[in-house]
């Protein structure tokens, strides 16, 4: 018997390891029975759609099934190159995202520092509470509100006319030229307070003796912020920057669906709503999938790229 075992081990070195694996597996069947539903879920709801991305290389219409649709290679991606509407949506997506990145990334840092500099007490808590609130409004609700504020009899027109900055009311959402600003500023209004939470949490861990030492050395408040507060947040700022950069091509979907109308569409359409329009409204599944796939690949490249850049800036320390 013993000799036999040794022989098997030499011929198929994996055999006993597999056996042990299955034995362990069986011994912990209770644990496995808890994780396998999660595995099945991921296979069905994440990995089957990833496999479904192959239709980007097919000509899939409502008449075909997944397997009978003919392969067309890169044809859909070639169409993208000359698709005027795609590039319009691309320009809008990048422009709006970069505006959100430029303003919306800095704003929560500044707001967090300002809140941090307040005395602890009810006023500080009240301001924090108020600043988080808009995050919990859905884009549908906020969209409805924006339509009201921007309408001819709405808050903005009234305010501007009351202070004499304007004579005739206008509906801002019908003005395509203003859309990028509306999208950017409304997003910042919604998320700036929420964005402070992590920064405030990190700042609360700064050792107060740093500030005391700086005060003795005669550093002004602004100098203290610049030399103590901001450097302490380096890690979290980097992390947020990576995530923000990789998100440039994503999202904006619900915001755009609510705020877009026939008057501002040329400036409002973004890639995700374009995919929706091509795929769900016009039924061109293959082309829409190709656009979507292109979007996710570029996002992934941006994520990896941003990670590499910040890693270099941090002398080789990874933040992810």
């Amino acid at each position: 018997m013993g000799k036999n075992n040794v022989e098997i081990k030499e011929k198929r070195p994996l055999g006993p390891r597999f056996k042990r694996f299955f034995k362990d597996f069986k011994n912990q069947w209770e644990l496995q029975s808890m994780i396998i539903p999660g595995l099945i879920f991921m296979i069905i709801f994440s990995y089957i759609p990833m496999y479904g991305l192959l239709i980007a290389f097919k000509q899939y219409t409502a008449l075909d099934t997944f397997s009978t649709a003919p392969w067309v290679g890169l044809k859909n991606f070639q169409i993208i190159m000359t698709d005027k509407f795609f590039w319009e949506a691309m320009v809008n997506t990048v422009a709006i995202s970069l505006m959100k990145l430029a303003i919306g990334f800095i704003a929560p840092i500044i707001l967090a520092i300002m809140i941090y500099e307040l005395h602890d007490g009810p006023i500080k808590r009240f301001m924090q509470t108020i600043s988080y609130l808009p995050h919990f409004l859905s884009w549908i609700v906020l969209g409805g509100m924006l339509i009201t504020w921007f309408s001819t009899t709405g808050l903005l027109n009234q305010t501007l006319m009351a202070v004499g900055l304007m004579d005739n009311p206008q509906n801002y959402l019908l003005d395509a030229g203003k859309y990028w600003w509306i999208a950017t500023l409304s997003d910042i209004w919604k998320e700036v307070g929420w964005g402070t939470i992590l920064y405030l949490a990190v700042m609360s861990k700064i050792d107060p003796t740093y500030y005391e030492a700086a005060k003795i050395d005669g550093a002004s408040r602004l100098k203290q912020i610049w030399h103590i507060t901001i450097p302490s947040m380096k890690y979290i700022i980097n992390l947020n920057l990576i995530l923000a950069v990789s998100g440039i091509f994503g999202s904006n979907f619900d915001q755009t669906l609510v705020l877009m109308n026939t008057q501002n569409q040329e400036k409002a359409e973004v890639l995700s709503t374009y995919v929706y329009r091509i795929g769900m409204t016009q039924g061109d599944f293959s082309y829409a999938t190709a656009v979507g796939l292109g979007m996710s690949i570029v996002s992934l490249i941006l994520l990896v790229g941003a990670h590499k850049v910040t890693k270099r800036l941090n002398e080789g320390q990874s933040v992810l």
Binding site: I48, P49, G52, F285, T289, M295, L303
Partner: peptide
């Protein structure tokens, strides 16, 4: 590994709709 991939990549709107 299977879980982490799902955090960074997905099938997107249309393949998910077809599923």
């Amino acid at each position: 590994a299977l879980g982490i991939i799902t955090l960074f990549f997905s099938g997107g709107m249309i393949p998910t709709y077809l599923l």
